[in-house]
């Protein structure tokens, strides 16, 4: 359904060379990416800033033309066939709005119905579903400029789905959102993906988005794919582990060992200890700890996406 073959995008930048002279230099933003995404897949696309995530998304949606290589979505080549493709895909740019700033949300949706030429009944049905799942009713008649970021993002999601696209591209859909809104967006996308009607491709900096939503994770760095597989495979490959931080009333007995976990740090004279979870689940480790010591507080810390990516650089 989505195919990229040796996809490249070069940008020319002018760099200062001496006092007045400027030199043109070619920088590859996307440097030979080949990927195939099947219908119904949910793919997370991650990488550090400037890795080429957004550039790839822009080539898939027909905003940018590739420098070389091939790209096709639904068998269409995005750049010459942009308008035909646009009818079949949905796009959400987390940092840009496609809603009408001064109009109520409802009006934006109505306008989009005309732009995408959606029959009224279909439009109604899809809008009804989004209203239910995203709780839009409370602010459907509020001008977009007065919406909170979380409300606006729910509006953007709806806007991208009203024409019933087969693929939804999301560029950092949870950026800047509060916890509740992030949850709302994630569970909505999870539900959407579960139907299998829509293929999801999303870029993000938030690993929780990926863990919650994506079965497949593509990591890109310096324009190249450095990992393509499940999130577990990524952690297994780079040995990144979740950790358990525990506050104790009394330090642990010396020689204490937690099965399936490794003690990696002890602070505050042994009142706070950190275990890395190797094979034990968080639940097993907590149960073992509570049985053996007096636990005041504990938290599970996810492996940081930046850590994982940093390790990827080191090995790339």
């Amino acid at each position: 359904m989505i195919r990229m073959q040796d996809l490249r995008k070069d940008f020319t930048v002018r760099v200062k060379a001496g006092r007045l002279r400027r030199e043109k230099r070619t920088v590859p933003a996307v440097d030979g990416v080949s990927l195939t995404i099947e219908p119904g897949e949910m793919v997370g696309y991650i990488g550090p800033n400037g890795a080429g995530k957004s550039t790839t998304l822009k080539m898939l949606t027909g905003v940018l033309a590739p420098t070389s290589g091939e790209v096709s979505v639904f068998g269409l080549t995005p750049v010459p066939q942009r308008t035909r493709l646009a009818l079949r895909i949905g796009v959400v740019f987390g940092q840009r709005s496609q809603l009408w700033w001064d109009l109520p949300l409802r009006e934006s949706f109505r306008l989009l119905r005309h732009i995408y030429r959606v029959p009224a009944a279909e439009h109604e049905a899809r809008l009804r579903r989004c209203r239910d799942l995203l709780d839009l009713d409370a602010f459907l008649d509020t001008p977009v400029r007065q919406l909170s970021l979380g409300q606006r993002m729910r509006g953007e999601l709806t806007a991208a789905l009203l024409h019933g696209p087969g693929v939804l591209f999301l560029d950092e859909p949870t950026i800047g959102l509060d916890v509740v809104s992030k949850q709302a967006v994630r569970s909505f996308l999870a539900e959407l993906g579960a139907t299998g009607d829509v293929t999801l491709v999303l870029t993000t900096h938030d690993l929780a988005d990926i863990e919650r939503l994506c079965h497949r994770l593509v990591v890109i760095d310096h324009g190249r794919v450095v990992h393509d597989g499940t999130i577990d495979a990524l952690h297994a490959r780079y040995g990144s582990r979740r950790s358990l931080v525990v506050d104790l009333d009394r330090p642990l007995a010396s020689g204490f060992a937690l099965p399936g976990a490794t003690l990696v740090a002890a602070e505050a004279e042994g009142h706070r200890v950190t275990f890395a979870l190797d094979s034990a689940s968080a639940g097993e480790a907590v149960a073992a700890l509570v049985a053996a010591a007096s636990v005041r507080d504990l938290s599970v810390v996810e492996p940081d996406i930046e850590d994982v990516v940093a390790r990827l650089y080191a090995s790339a």
């Binding site: 905003v63 009818l87 496609q98 732009i115 030429r117």
Partner: peptide, 13 residues
């Protein structure tokens, strides 16, 4: 501002 990108994703010229 990059607004042109949002114009380019719509099915119109």
């Amino acid at each position: 501002a990059g607004t042109l990108d949002t114009v380019l994703i719509r099915p119109l010229r």
